[in-house]
Amino acid sequence: MAAVGEPDRIGVLVIRAWLEEEEGVPGGLRARITETLDVAAPSPVEAVAASEEQIVAIVVAWLRAFTLRADEPMADGP
């Protein structure tokens, strides 16, 4: 879970990760990632992944999108 940005613009990304049992032991990594770029006007999007690399790629993409959005003027600001 992460929350970054200015107090008046907060994005949230939640990673639900679990291990599927394989041959009786925890094995395959799975994750469902819920992300929103602005909790004040939430438009949650879900992504799924089955490896560390996929999860990292999704997190990086979200951070980039959040950073780009942070450069935009606020809709309700002066």
């Binding site: 041959e23 094995g27 395959g28 089955a50």
Partner: peptide, 13 residues
């Protein structure tokens, strides 16, 4: 579902 969304196969179990 897992093939389309995760590109994997069901487990041996």
């Amino acid at each position: 579902l897992v093939s389309e969304q995760l590109g994997i196969e069901p487990s041996a179990r």
